[in-house]
Amino acid sequence: MSEEKHHIVPYRVYIIVLLALLALTFASIGITSIELGEYTVAGALIFACIKSFLVLTYFMHLKYDKKYIRAMVVFVFVIFVVMIVITFLDYLYR
């Protein structure tokens, strides 16, 4: 099974990603300590989404994997979001 090719990710990439993640964490703590009212959750979730994008892309190697794995991940997240939206068709209008 020699045909498999490994993309060796340099340490530098991981360190940069970690620093970015830490910066985003502290930024989200900072942002939410400001009184933003109903936008607090939205703000926190946007930061969480960016962070999870970084984890998926670099730590979980999606950037270097075959495209169909990426497509599956996107599909699963879409299904989940659609599930929440549909449930809220009930709770928003009840």
Binding site: I79, V82, M83, I86, L89, D90, L92, Y93, R94
Partner: peptide, 21 residues
Amino acid sequence: GYLVWGHHMFTAGMSGTAQYY
């Protein structure tokens, strides 16, 4: 088929919007 589960719940007290959907 993943998106139609609510038709088991038409009499459970869902919102009208959800029922139409």
